[in-house]
């Protein structure tokens, strides 16, 4: 065998080692980010989830004012944790539209009665269709939508106090 070929296995192992080491040093980010940022919100028209809030459709996002689209559910524990901070955002004048995923109306009403209701509108999605439209892979997630119906930002997981100013900033940028 040629001399260089003898060292080939060691060289290949070197590559393997480098791959492993990078994998360890910079562990992969396991969240599946939406690829829809910067693209227009797809068409949707969801039925009303609770009696005291109107239903939600794409047309509600094209009045020129940036809004939040929050995907939540009564069965989702982190959604309880983020409720106060969504309320903070609502108190700061942000319009938040919610979509209740795979949920029953009485359960949603109970959830809102217990944890507060920061939503201007709430749509009901029984088959997670809106999540596939948005490129969302879990609950809760919050999207910043600008006044023309463009998706500008995706927040994965519950909103914590430190995220509130950042989200307000994103809304401002979406003006």
């Amino acid at each position: 065998m040629k001399h260089w070929a003898i060292w080939l296995p060691l060289a290949l192992f070197g590559v393997l080692f480098a791959v492993f080491a990078t994998g360890l040093i910079a562990p992969a980010d396991r969240t599946i980010a939406s690829q829809m940022i910067g693209k227009p919100l797809p068409q949707f028209d969801l039925p009303q989830a609770v009696p005291d809030r109107p239903a939600l459709a794409r047309t509600n996002f094209t009045d020129g004012k940036p809004k939040l689209l929050n995907v939540f559910a009564s069965w989702c524990v982190p959604c309880i944790a983020e409720a106060p901070y969504l309320q903070q955002l609502a108190d700061a004048g942000v319009e938040i539209n919610g979509v209740a995923i795979r949920d029953r109306s009485p359960d949603v009403q109970q959830f809102l009665a217990r944890n507060g209701n920061p939503y201007a509108r709430i749509g009901a999605d029984d088959v997670s269709k809106i999540q596939f439209d948005l490129g969302s892979s879990g609950v809760p997630e919050t999207f910043v939508i600008d006044g023309q119906g463009m998706i500008r930002y995706q927040h994965i997981g519950d909103i914590r106090p430190e995220h509130v100013p950042m989200i307000l900033q994103k809304l401002k940028e979406a003006q």
Binding site: W75, C76, R102, D103, R104, D126, V127, V139
Partner: peptide, 10 residues
């Protein structure tokens, strides 16, 4: 993790 109460999608 996800204990939703709805039956599966059709």
């Amino acid at each position: 993790a996800a204990q939703d109460s709805l039956p599966p999608a059709p």
